[in-house]
Computed example of a mutant assay.
Amino acid sequence: MKWTAKIFNKQNVFLLLLVLMVVMAKLIPFQESYNRYFNLSAFIDWGIAGIFLLYGLKLNLKEVVKDISNWKVHLLIQAGTFILFPLLVFLFYPLAKGSEYYNVWLSVFFLACLPSTVSSSVVMVSIAKGNVTSAIFNASISGLIGIVMTPLLMSFFLTPVSGGGNHGEVVQQLLIKVLLPIILGILLNPVFKKWVTKYSSIIAEFDRLIILLIVYESFSTAFVQNIFASVPGVVFLILAFSVVFLFFIVYHILQFLAKKMKFNAKDIITVTFCGSKKSLVHGSLFLLVLGIPEGQKVLFLLPVMIYHSFQLFYVSWLASRIAQRPLDIEK
Rank of each mutant, 00 (worst) to 15 (best):
Y307N: 00
Q296A: 12
L318D: 07
I306D: 06
F310R: 01
V298C: 11
V298N: 12
S309R: 02
Q296W: 10
P303N: 01
V298R: 09
P326M: 05
V304D: 00
Y307F: 12
I306P: 15
A323V: 09
Q296H: 12
E294P: 14
V315T: 12
S309Q: 11
R321V: 10
Q311K: 01
L312E: 06
V304T: 03
E294R: 08
Y307M: 02
W317R: 15
H308Y: 08
P293K: 01
Q324I: 08
Q296L: 12
P293Q: 01
Q296D: 09
Q296Y: 13
R325A: 12
Q311S: 04
F300T: 00
Q324S: 14
Y314C: 07
L299R: 07
Q311P: 15
R321W: 15
L299G: 01
F310V: 05
P303A: 00
A319M: 06
G295H: 11
L302H: 11
V304C: 04
H308W: 07
W317I: 14
Y307T: 00
I306R: 03
I306T: 07
L318V: 10
V298T: 13
L301W: 04
S316E: 04
Y307S: 00
R321Y: 15
S309N: 05
F300C: 02
S309E: 11
I306F: 15
M305Q: 02
L299P: 04
I322P: 06
P303W: 02
A323E: 06
L327E: 14
I306S: 06
L301H: 01
P293A: 00
E294I: 06
K297Q: 05
L312P: 06
R321P: 11
F313E: 01
G295F: 06
R325E: 14
Y314L: 11
Q324P: 12
P326A: 06
F300M: 03
R325Y: 15
P303K: 01
Y314T: 05
R325T: 12
W317H: 13
L299F: 10
R325K: 14
F313C: 09
Q296V: 05
I306E: 05
P303L: 01
K297S: 03
Q311W: 07
V304F: 04
S309Y: 13
F310Q: 03
